[in-house]
Each structure stands twice: as structure tokens, then as C-alpha cells.
């Protein structure tokens, strides 16, 4: 059973506002889902998680160069933003006391 305290911690980590009753209802749903996935404990697994597919994947590299001309996407980016100020996206104060 996930406690309300733990749910509140998760809500903070997730950056999501929940009412208390939403959190309670979600805790019940999560308990049932987590109860279902716990069947994985039936499996003995010493398999190294990275061993097999590590050899199938390769890194995709490119030169560390800027390829687009300065300002090319500025207007598009600013047009998408909810709040802008000059050529900046405006947000509330980041650093706290």
C-alpha cells in the first residue's frame, strides 16, 4: 500500500497538482497495477541488463559544430512560448532565498 505521504512525494517529484481525493484514488489504482507487475519477482534473473542489446546499439555521432545560422529559429521558438519578453522566454524567479 502506497501511503498518502509517499503519494505526495511522488506528486512533488512529478510536478503535478493533485487534490487529496485524486491522490487517494490514484493510490488505489497504483496499488493494483503494482500488485500486478510484482509477478516479475517469480523470475530469477541474474541477466546483466545491458549485456545483450549493448552490442546491438551503436552511438550516432556528429561533429560538434553549430550548423544553423544564428537567429534562424528564434522567431519560431518565441512564437511557441507562452510568455516572452524581448528575445527571451519569461519565467518566474528561479533562485529562492
Amino acid at each position: 500500500m502506497i501511503s498518502q505521504e509517499e503519494m505526495k512525494k511522488l506528486a512533488t517529484l512529478s510536478r503535478i497538482d493533485f487534490t487529496d481525493s485524486e491522490l487517494e484514488s490514484m493510490a488505489r489504482d497504483m496499488d493494483s497495477i503494482l500488485g500486478y507487475v510484482e509477478q516479475l519477482n517469480e523470475i530469477e534473473g541474474k541477466q546483466d541488463r545491458l549485456s545483450a542489446s549493448a552490442t546491438e546499439r551503436t552511438n550516432v555521432m556528429r561533429e560538434d559544430e553549430v550548423t544553423s545560422p544564428a537567429g534562424k529559429y528564434t522567431e519560431k521558438i518565441l512564437d511557441s512560448a507562452p510568455k516572452t519578453n524581448d528575445n527571451f522566454i519569461e519565467v518566474k524567479k528561479i533562485l529562492n532565498n
Binding site: 507487475v37 516479475l40 519477482n41 523470475i43 534473473g45 541477466q47 546483466d48 541488463r49 549485456s51 545483450a52 542489446s53
Partner: peptide, 8 residues
Amino acid sequence: KAWQVREM
């Protein structure tokens, strides 16, 4: 654990 089972 889930990744391990996925690899298996």
C-alpha cells in the same frame, strides 16, 4: 528487474 526480464 523489468529490463532484465526484457533481455531474457
